[in-house]
Amino acid sequence: MYTTFYKNEKILQPNFTAEVCFDYYNERIRVDDYRGNVNLLSNWLDEIVSQNKFQKIIIKCRHDDLSQWLEKGFINEGEFTGFFNGASAVSMCKYFSNERRNSNYWIEEDKIINDVLKLPQGSISSLIPNEYTLRMADEQDAKELADLYNQVFEVYPTPMDDPEYVLKMIRSGTLFCVVTYKQKIISAASADVNAVYHNAEITDCATLKEHRKFGLMKHLINRLEKELFNRKIYCSYSIARALSFGMNAVFHQKGYVFKGRLANNCKIFDKYEDMNIWVKDLSKNI
């Protein structure tokens, strides 16, 4: 099922190489790594867009290449500090439709982020209630995790409601942390680890509605951060729905720094949504 969502390919051309995700579900191309001639890579990407229905290209570029991507019509939407083994990645984006470029919620999201940034930062103050258990997940949890994501998200940018997809993620090195209630998973989050560049994305954050009043997500992220720190992975980042006060507040209060906003980045719930970038250096602040 999930193979129809996206396809990852290593592109080998005479003048450049690139790690490319063809994200059909979200109608975008994402370049997570590249080397070589920026001009020819950009031309190649434009040609791929013209042959398909992609509406957006996202490039994680080095600072040294920033001006070259600007010259090719890309815009700077944010920064993943420390992404490349300590060196920052800049999120450069190019749009191919006005509808995809323009956000209807930008001003509302500005107000949300301004209110979030006024909140105090600090350690977790509340304890998990006795009837809840926090633990790392394993392969046996794949089906229950998929059931959780199916209940929480009507639409999601990756097929997290597919047990086979979740199992593949676990086997490929993605860390899942869960909270259980009466032996059932009611909250979860994951850390998608990049072993080459020593970074991890905190993602797939979900809690059943009736259990959201206990601040479980902070505990999940806290545990994932400790796992990453023990593996010498210091760049922890996340992209959170810009319209979600709660999730943005969680990352701010956990010491993450707001680094930009990706317009109409991916499908969540019933529409394309803007996503806020949050980054934390675990070597300084865990």
Score class of each variant (00 low, 15 high):
Val250Asn: 15
Thr207His: 03
Leu228Trp: 00
Ser236Met: 04
Lys218Ile: 00
Arg241Ser: 08
Leu216Gln: 10
Phe251Ile: 03
Tyr272Gly: 00
Ile221Trp: 05
Phe258Gly: 07
Glu227Cys: 14
Ala206Met: 09
Arg223Glu: 11
Ala249Gly: 11
His219Met: 00
Leu224His: 02
Lys218Tyr: 05
Phe229Glu: 04
Ser244Val: 11
Lys267Asp: 01
Ile277Tyr: 12
Lys226Ser: 05
Gly215Cys: 01
Lys267Gly: 01
Val257Leu: 09
Arg261Phe: 10
Val250Ser: 01
Tyr256Gln: 09
Asn222Cys: 06
Cys235Leu: 06
Phe269Met: 13
Asn265Ile: 04
Asp270Ser: 13
Gly255Ser: 06
Lys226Val: 10
Lys271Leu: 08
Trp278Phe: 13
Ala263Lys: 08
Phe229Ile: 07
Ile268Leu: 14
Ile239Ala: 14
Ala249Asn: 11
Arg223Tyr: 03
Leu208Thr: 01
Lys213Pro: 05
Arg223Ser: 02
Arg231Ile: 00
Phe251Thr: 07
Leu208Tyr: 07
Asn222Gly: 00
Lys213Ile: 05
Gly246Met: 03
Ile221Met: 07
Glu273His: 02
His211Ala: 00
Phe214Gly: 04
Ile268Gly: 11
Asn248Thr: 07
Leu262Gly: 02
Gln253Cys: 10
Asn276Cys: 15
Asn264Trp: 02
Ala206Gly: 12
Tyr256Asn: 09
Val257Asp: 13
Leu224Val: 11
Ala206Trp: 01
His219Phe: 07
Ile221Cys: 10
Lys259Gln: 15
Arg223Cys: 04
Glu210Ser: 10
Gly255Val: 02
Arg223Thr: 11
Asn265Ala: 07
Leu208Pro: 05
His211Lys: 02
Phe229Asn: 01
Lys267Val: 15
Phe245Glu: 03
His211Ser: 03
Glu210Asn: 10
Ser238Phe: 15
Thr207Ser: 15
Ile233Gly: 09
Ser238Gln: 05
Glu225Pro: 03
Ser238Glu: 15
Leu262Trp: 09
Ala249His: 06
